[in-house]
Design a protein around this nucleic acid. Structure first.
Length: 431
RNA sequence: GCCGGCGUAGCUCAGCCUGGUAGAGCAGCGGGCUGUUAACCCGUUGGUCGGUGGUUCAAAUCCACCCGCCGGCGCCA
């Protein structure tokens, strides 16, 4: 069974030409001896008119009996008709049922959120979900292309690990042949090892967080684009983030224009055009204090603070130089002010919050050991990581970007799980 | 983990405050319709009211505990 025409081809066909489409019946409207079918495939939806007397009697009977989401093959004539959505419809001569729906299709207009998530395996047929997944694919492709074109090597790192990156208790425990293992929450440490062979690396793979975060911007499993670069200092990595994020947004604005229409969205490259505003933690604190927010130096910004801050900007913006107490042990300290890190978070505007986190890493052996101790962590847990600083250690920097966070922001999705085919949240591991 | 909301027909919800043993729309089923777009019109089926215990002559309704889901916080991408 070779599929010669897709729905999108049908819209481009000459009026009067005969074509054969294969797809699924999205909806059906009966008018006695006239039946309208909306035929869906991966490229779009077209109205099919099945008229008694025009199509053969067996085909009309088939159209009468099939349930929604049945797979059918329809042969007919392309007609322009302003009454059909898109201005084109297929006048059916012959309709064959390839795979009938055995029961009524559960997804209908008006069903609720929980029902859709419980039936995600069926819901993903909807044109909107399809559009988001196509955009997601393009977004990842653009990022990979840019990184490859700029000399970065894609590496794949393990998912099973033995020690936390952050030192927190946010990892999923896994039984590993009688030993304790965890699911990775970042491949950063492995990338830091890899730069000594490959210098510029990136990974695009899932990260796992065992936090019971019940918010519209958290997943327990998300796709993490991580980049690590030898010799790079904070300034260098911020430039990379700026160009990469802009490239991704600009690429979508051009490559996904038609698909975005399905969602009623438009992405303009100007919304992410560099340079991005840069705010030091202490400056951000000043802005917040001026707005009447009670927050002391040293405290991390909460979601409320981030939201207030992000309303000050139209474009993504960096917040840098956090107090070392608010960040993980591996962050390089600012030589001009050792109370703060050489770190940079990129926050999306309009309250969408953090989409990138990164900065310069400690490359000095003694300083790293000291920082691990200061954080009350066990040096044994970070043995091989510390070992990297023993042999030809050099300054290096990196960052992580949340793919779903970025889609959530760019598509203004109501919840980050809409950016996933099968989202994983604290309450959901099925389907 | 903390705070708030919700759980009633296959689906979406009303009823709960003010206790008297359950209702609408959609879907389904039967019939009609040659221009619909969530088609429409007529008829019709469908429920251990999340669970357990308590108060009461009587509980979907009041009380307690538990479970599930949704959102906010903390945490982060």
């Amino acid at each position: 069974m070779f599929k010669k025409y897709y729905v999108k081809d049908a819209f481009l066909s000459e009026e009067g030409s005969e074509i054969e489409l294969i797809g699924w019946v999205r909806s059906k409207r009966r008018h006695g001896r006239l039946i309208f079918l909306d035929l869906r495939d991966s490229t779009g939806v077209i109205q099919v008119a099945v008229k008694q007397g025009v199509s053969d009697s067996k085909s009309f009977e088939n159209a009468l009996e099939i349930g929604l989401e049945s797979a059918v093959m329809v042969r007919g004539i392309i007609k322009k008709d302003p009454r059909a959505h898109g201005g084109v419809e297929l006048h059916c001569n012959n309709l064959k049922v390839l795979g009938p729906s055995l029961e009524d299709f559960p997804i209908r207009k008006g069903v609720g959120l929980k029902f859709l998530l419980d039936n995600r395996h069926l819901h993903l047929r909807s044109p909107k979900v399809v559009a988001i997944m196509k955009i997601r694919s393009i977004l990842m492709d653009i990022a990979r292309r840019w990184l490859r074109d700029n000399g970065f090597i894609e590496i794949n790192c393990p998912t099973f690990i033995t020690a936390a990156v952050e030192g927190g208790a946010t990892l999923f425990n896994v039984e590993y042949f009688g030993r304790k293992a965890y699911l990775t929450q970042s491949v950063q440490f492995y990338q830091e090892a890899a730069i000594y062979g490959l210098e510029k690396v990136y990974s695009l793979q899932p990260s796992f967080r065992a936090e019971l975060s019940r918010t519209r911007r958290h997943l327990t499993e998300f796709w993490h684009l991580e980049v690590e670069m030898a010799y790079a200092e904070l300034e260098d990595i911020m430039k990379i983030v700026e160009v990469l994020v802009y490239t991704m947004v600009d690429g979508l604005s051009r490559e996904a224009r038609d698909i975005l229409k399905v969602l009623g969205k438009e992405i303009k490259s100007e919304m992410a055009e560099p340079p991005y505003p840069r705010v030091k933690y202490s400056e951000a604190l000043q802005i917040l204090n001026n707005k009447g927010v009670q927050i002391n130096w040293g405290e991390d910004f909460g979601a409320d603070e981030e939201r207030i801050l992000s309303k000050e900007f139209e474009k993504p913006f960096f917040v840098t130089n956090y107090p070392k107490e608010a960040k993980a042990f591996y962050h390089m300290l600012d030589p001009t002010d050792p109370s703060v890190c050489l770190n940079a978070d990129l926050l999306a505007p309009k309250g969408y919050g953090e989409i990138v986190g990164g900065g310069q890493r400690i490359h000095d052996y003694h300083l790293l050991v000291e920082r691990i101790r200061e954080n009350g962590l066990n040096i044994e847990d970070y043995k091989w990581y510390v070992d990297l600083r023993r042999y030809g250690s050099i300054p290096h920097s990196g960052f992580g970007l949340g793919i779903e966070r970025m889609l959530w922001w760019l598509l203004e999705l109501p919840h980050i799980r809409s950016a996933c085919l099968f989202p994983r949240t604290p309450a959901r591991v099925y389907p």
